[in-house]
Amino acid sequence: MDSQHLLDNLLNVIFLFIPLIIVIVLVLGSLAGLHYFLLAKHGHLSSEQKLLRQVSMLVLTIVGSVVIAMTLPVSESTRNQVIALIGVLLSGVIAFSSTTIVSNLMAGIVLRVNKPFKVGDFIKVDRYSGRVTEMGLLDTEIQTESRELIAFANTLMVNSPVSVTRASGAVVSVELSLGYDLHHSLVERFLIEAAKAAQLSDPFVQVISLGDFSVSYRVSGLLLEVNSLVSARSRLHKAVLDTLHNNDIEIVSPAFVNQRPQIEGSRILAKTPRQNILSTAMADAYSSTVENTPENVIFDKAEQAQQQARTKDSLTQALAEIESQLENAQGENKAELKLKKEKIEETLGELINQKLQDDDVVTTTNRNI
């Protein structure tokens, strides 16, 4: 009798734990499957790309813990206490964590969804301008024209106005003041000629102000290759100088005579040197300067990041197309697609490792400095 009663109690306890065991198996199996499809299957993803998937797995794990707690074979009050304990632990983690980190994380997700700019774009924010080198979930890094790397919190990028240079083209402008003795139609003709010499499209001239002693002009043109924005500005300045000086127009303050008396009729002009008197060394130096554009030195990391992003996007797109083709492929075609997939994944892995090595080199250099 006692043994029968003990057996019945044991069976009752087992029956009580059966739902819990089933739920544990289902939750663990689901989490393992999701981990495979979100992370393990995509080993070519970078740590930054995996971060959002890892956060999703964390949230799903918390949900699974709550589901397991709801099936515990205890009284309803005890079950509620366990669930409340989980909530208190989560609240404590969030409370002790920095609110800045949470807000930057949410702002980073907003930037990923809205995509106001991408790696390699020229942007201006909070009195700083440069090209975007990295877009993380916590901050965004840009490289300025002085080659400095500046990291902005994502909350600043969301809450502050950000001007982005369009990839289809940017307007390059130069402002200058000339005397009232020059007719605006003549000035406009020469400035448009300078803009065309600077390889700008659709040039136009504006009279922006009438001062007490001079007229202020602005010459602008459309630059289609925005990656050479810095060079284009310098090129336009030089073209304006050459065009106006070669046409006997001096760019000088009307009060110049009062500060530095000149012989009547003399002009302060910088004439363009003749090509035949340039030495071979000067010509070689000039051609070397043209090839080594300022952008190659100033925005080296931004240019490299943009190229890596484009390559990664193209490889990821090709990988997605191959995976879709594999579902219906058979025989030799399937084996060939698998081989292509392996090569693309290997290339992606090398690209990600190269980026990590470059980041380590930059970090080590900065520490040594």
Rank of each mutant, 00 (worst) to 15 (best):
E250C: 04
F256I: 04
V252N: 04
L224Q: 13
S253T: 04
A255F: 13
S228P: 00
V252P: 00
H237A: 13
F256A: 12
H237D: 14
L224C: 00
L244M: 05
D242V: 10
V226R: 13
S253A: 11
K238F: 02
K271D: 08
I263Q: 05
Q259F: 12
E250T: 02
L236I: 12
N247L: 05
N247P: 06
R267F: 06
N246F: 03
N258P: 01
I268K: 07
A270L: 05
Q275D: 12
E250H: 02
A232Y: 12
P273Y: 12
P254C: 07
T243Q: 15
L229H: 03
Q262H: 05
R274H: 14
A232Q: 06
D242S: 07
E250G: 06
L269Y: 10
E264N: 14
I249W: 12
V240I: 14
N247R: 13
S234G: 09
D242F: 11
S253V: 00
L236E: 10
R260Y: 09
L269W: 11
L269F: 11
H237W: 05
H245D: 05
I251K: 01
I268Y: 07
E250S: 12
D242L: 07
K238W: 01
E250P: 01
T272P: 00
Q262S: 01
F256Q: 11
E250W: 11
D242Q: 11
S228M: 08
Q262F: 03
N246T: 03
S266W: 13
A239N: 09
F256P: 00
E250V: 02
V257M: 14
L244N: 07
E264A: 15
E264H: 15
L229D: 00
V257Q: 15
L244E: 03
D242E: 14
G265A: 03
H245F: 13
F256S: 14
K271Y: 01
L229R: 05
R260M: 04
L236S: 10
G265D: 02
H245S: 08
V226K: 09
S228E: 13
D248W: 06
H237K: 15
R260Q: 04
E264I: 14
V257E: 15
V257K: 14
L236F: 08
Q262C: 01
P273F: 03
T272V: 14
S228F: 15
L269E: 11
E264W: 10
L269P: 11
A255E: 14
H237I: 13
G265T: 02
E225C: 00
I249H: 10
